[in-house]
């Protein structure tokens, strides 16, 4: 407190540390670190944005001109790399920093923006934009908005309105576009106006094996489960195999695998229902729960089934 009073009487300095504490940014950043494994480049960029907004705030306190930074972003990356999760955190963070007023996240896809007949698109898009004002508009799989093969597609109209609002009402909302890397690149290439209005292009890398294991353990911990030591070994082998198979969707695959594992664990406990189950039994995942997966079966038989079990 003493520091802050000092800053008040001495108008040629601002205590960044106090401002930092006051806005509780660290909490959100810590949460981000704890809940999201890996994603180095993403976290670095978020840290930078947080720092920029903090400095801007300090500048505003000293009556220095502050260009309102454009914070529209694009998240590109493979499925299951945490784009939506980060977008949600982003909304929270921006609200804490006072960049957006409410901090709600409105997640939409093409369906919510583009209408079905002439004159339907504009009101629909505007409706969504209004709901997102004061917060973050998250457009998932944004490349579907633009269909180059059909020049009468209403998506272009929607993009036009989006661009207008992104430019003129920068203070009112932040737009985040998300999608798979290659398709988003095509999307931006055919919409240069969109690309140039987005200041932050953030690429989400795929997770490494260690990171996936850590993610799996976090997910289990959140549901009050845990892997026994042997099960962890098996789980690691499972992921190794699963990663080489088609349709691998990073964290999403991990979640699905764990959901099926819980199913098998429940079944295993149910089979021996004559015996009493303890708290530890109910919480622990054992190797057989994971080994029953079709992923191992496919490996031993040398054929690869599509979905993984």
């Amino acid at each position: 407190m003493g520091d802050r009073e000092g800053a008040g009487t001495m108008p040629d300095g601002v205590d960044l540390g106090a401002l930092f504490l006051e806005t509780k940014i660290q909490e959100t950043l810590d949460e981000l670190d704890a809940e999201l494994v890996g994603l180095r480049p993403v976290k670095t960029r978020i840290r930078e944005i947080a720092a920029l907004l903090l400095v801007d705030r300090a500048r505003a306190q000293l009556d220095l001109a502050g260009g309102n930074p454009s914070l529209h972003m694009s998240f590109t990356g493979n499925p299951g790399t945490g784009k939506t999760t980060v977008a949600m955190r982003m909304a929270e963070l921006l609200a804490k920093l006072g960049y957006v007023r409410q901090g709600q996240l409105v997640a939409v896809t093409r369906d919510d923006l583009v209408g079905q007949y002439i004159g339907h698109t504009a009101p629909k898009t505007k409706e969504v934009l209004k709901r997102a004002m004061g917060g973050v508009l998250f457009i998932d799989e944004a490349y579907y908005l633009f269909k180059p093969e059909n020049e009468r597609d209403y998506g272009a109209e929607s993009i036009e309105i989006l661009l207008q609002v992104m430019e003129n009402q920068r203070n009112d909302l932040v737009v985040i576009l998300a999608g798979y890397k290659d398709r988003m690149d095509t999307f931006f290439a055919s919409n240069p106006g969109m690309s140039s209005r987005i200041a932050h292009h953030i690429d989400f890398p795929d997770y490494s094996l260690d990171e996936l294991v850590a993610i799996g353990k976090l997910m289990l911990a959140a549901q009050q489960y845990r892997l026994s030591d042997e099960a962890e070994e098996v789980f690691r082998r499972y992921l190794e195999l699963r990663m080489t198979q088609p349709n691998f969707a990073n964290a999403r695959s991990v979640r699905n695998a764990l959901d099926r594992t819980r199913l098998r664990q429940a079944n295993r406990l149910f089979e021996r229902r004559s015996a009493r189950v303890t708290r530890v039994d109910l919480m622990t995942i054992e190797p057989p729960d994971i080994l029953a997966s079709r992923v191992f079966e496919a490996d031993s038989q040398g054929n690869d089934r599509e979905q993984g079990g």
Partner: peptide, 14 residues
Amino acid sequence: PMFDLRDPAAILYE
């Protein structure tokens, strides 16, 4: 009536 809006900017727009 704008039941679903959370920010004044959207209502001011209307």
